[in-house]
Design a protein around this nucleic acid. Structure first.
Lengths: 190, 190
DNA sequence: GTCTGACCATACGGGAGCGTACGGAGGTGG
DNA sequence: CCACCTCCGTACGCTCCCGTATGGTCAGAC
């Protein structure tokens, strides 16, 4: 049984998970080895055994983020039958996640960092590409689909910004209403 | 003639402007007194004469940002005659500015900071409110206008994120085309 | 039981920034 | 020409964090 590591040895995955939380809370600057070690009940000696330096930790954390916050979601959404239902589920899932943690916006904010840039570029292209594909499946011609996918993604990004900034954007039960409104606007013929 | 201060004494406004640039480049963490002093050709002795501490500098920089990047733009846009033309000019101006500097997204990213939060809240409410007003002027009922204003603003925020992340979102001449597309989608009846 | 290697704690050196103390330069009024 | 005020440079102590060096602990191999 995985006893959630009370007094067990630490793994690189443990450090990466803690680093992701730190990014969500304080951005890249929040990833500091010594405070992280204290939070994990360990010391730097443990960290520098598993990682070469701080940058390697950030790398590992971003790899985990790329997997959990993009590919996993796409796989799950893609199991829906109806394209419109897929889009609905995607928007609901994404906005829901945006309420729970602010990792996405934190990573975006650090987009200029050389370690973050390539990961962010891949994730962004993947997400916009999938959205555009959904709009194509809804019957829009390619150029239209791409524009609407881009608009949908930028709207999502902005929404996460507002949420993280504490603005009452679309809270709780309002999410469903807002998603329906967005769906109506984005899928209406021009 | 303002000789752009070659060897002149420094004013608080000089420090605030430099701090704004620093925020755009490196976020709040980029606002460091000593590096800023070096860049201005001065030392900390000068800084701590004009400001009580680092936080006071950030305050001043944000006040300048609130004025220059919101009120000024609204005043200028509001001089247009046609509501649709106002919206078009606003989108074009905002997206154009987003290409030149990345202050907006940097401030957004620091939204959780206690000094930034109240300023950001005011600016956000003001911008969304003005956008909603524009959609009302275009004939949408209040609830519709608010939703579309919110969608337009989140789309703008997301767009600035993409631009700052180096994505080819809507570059140069493509801005006009993209603005027209967005205008078409956002002002089309549901 | 000893040995080896994975894993970790402790201690250290170094750098970057914040804030303070204090003294000096330069203009200005009397 | 002197006193004064504004503005700034220099020097210092402090904190936080990175990365390294080194020794200790514990499990399993044999």
């Amino acid at each position: 049984m995985a006893v959630t590591n009370s007094t067990r040895k630490l793994t690189p995955a443990d450090w990466a998970a803690a680093a992701l939380n730190a990014i969500a809370e304080g951005g890249l600057a929040g990833v500091a080895v010594e405070p992280l070690a204290r939070r994990l009940g360990a010391t730097k000696g443990s960290f520098y055994w598993h990682f070469a330096n701080r940058e390697a930790l950030i790398d590992a954390a971003l790899a985990r983020w790329e997997q959990d916050h993009t590919e996993s979601v796409i796989v799950r959404v893609d199991q829906e039958d109806d394209p419109r239902q897929r889009l609905r589920l995607l928007l609901t899932t994404a906005l829901g996640l945006a309420h729970e943690d602010s990792i996405d916006s934190a990573v975006l904010a650090a987009g200029s960092h050389p370690v973050v840039a390539p990961v962010l570029e891949r994730v962004t292209a993947r997400r916009i590409g999938y959205l555009a594909e959904l709009f194509r499946q809804l019957g829009f011609p390619p150029a239209q689909a791409r524009d609407r996918g881009l608009l949908a993604y930028t709207a999502y990004l902005g929404q996460t910004q507002l949420i993280q900034a504490g603005l009452p954007a679309a809270q709780g039960a309002g999410v469903r209403r807002y998603v329906e409104r967005i769906l109506g606007i984005l899928t209406a013929p021009e």
